[in-house]
Design a protein around this nucleic acid. Sequence first.
DNA 1: TTGGAAAGTCAACAAGGCTGACATAAAATC
DNA 2: GATTTTATGTCAGCCTTGTTGACTTTCCAA
Lengths: 168, 168
Amino acid sequence: MAETGANAAGGEGLLFLTDEQLRKGIEAMFFAYRGFTADPDRILEGMDYGRAHHRALHFVHRQPGLTVSTLLAVLGVTKQSLNRVLRTLIDDGLVESRIGRKDKRERHLYLTDKGGALERELSEAQRVRMRAAYRAAGPQAVAGFRQVLEAMMDPDLRRQYLMLRDRA
Amino acid sequence: MAETGANAAGGEGLLFLTDEQLRKGIEAMFFAYRGFTADPDRILEGMDYGRAHHRALHFVHRQPGLTVSTLLAVLGVTKQSLNRVLRTLIDDGLVESRIGRKDKRERHLYLTDKGGALERELSEAQRVRMRAAYRAAGPQAVAGFRQVLEAMMDPDLRRQYLMLRDRA
DNA sequence: TTGGAAAGTCAACAAGGCTGACATAAAATC
DNA sequence: GATTTTATGTCAGCCTTGTTGACTTTCCAA
């Protein structure tokens, strides 16, 4: 294990931020994200679905009954882009779309049993990797991991994330 | 700040890995990666370049003179896909492609002054965000951040990453 | 000298972004 | 109550960037 730089600077609480240190973080994000998505991608290839479907399933699972516009905001894509993905999920019977009772313009989204099954398969694959990484790095590292990631988010996205994070 | 779970389990060194904890990590990765790419993307939109061009510039900068096939392996895309990107960068005078002296089949890639300038602009935007996140999270967190990310990579990618990480 | 690796090209296609135009429901305004 | 405005969702088409497959050229090395 090479020196981490952050600690090498010696100052507890004082961050020695060379461009080198930052660059390592940037490259770590790049390579790690590929690993992060690799397992679900592997499962989905062959099915007619992709990463976009996975994301939709994930957040519908997380927040059953959410409206399309809420999902839109969370995913940060256009409604047209989401629609294509959602369309296939609904047509294939993975997601159910119910018209709102109060406001009939809204569509509330739910996973069907079939949709729930796929979501579980995908997220379990992702959790296996995440669990292994957490175990390898240890609890202290895990806390730091999340802190840095949260600090890296755009403010709007962080709001979204925190709302979900501390729900229920 | 909500409990982190890792520590909440109490066991120093014993990780209490609920699916909840893992899910938070997964969502943090998702939202953080959007922030991570947001600034360079913003700079690139309007130019005729995209994220793929940024990645190519980054690694050519990191390892001047690398061959196309090395870049291919690092980026993890097909040569046809890379070629399109590289083509425009070369044609626009951002990247120089020199035929290998020993092995004339190889093309060694270098940034031109112009290419270096764009690379600097992009990476500086990314560093600004990373620097802010590091500062906000603190040195302990930074070390943990990198540890978890490294543990999350596919073994092949981790090799690539470590070679770059500890270079020069 | 011949086999195979490296590089590049062309063509076709897929996923998943995007914008623009439009339909409909609900809400707001006249 | 009728009409305009806004919110929401859909359809059509384009762009980037990934993919495969087929093929050529160059040139190292057995």
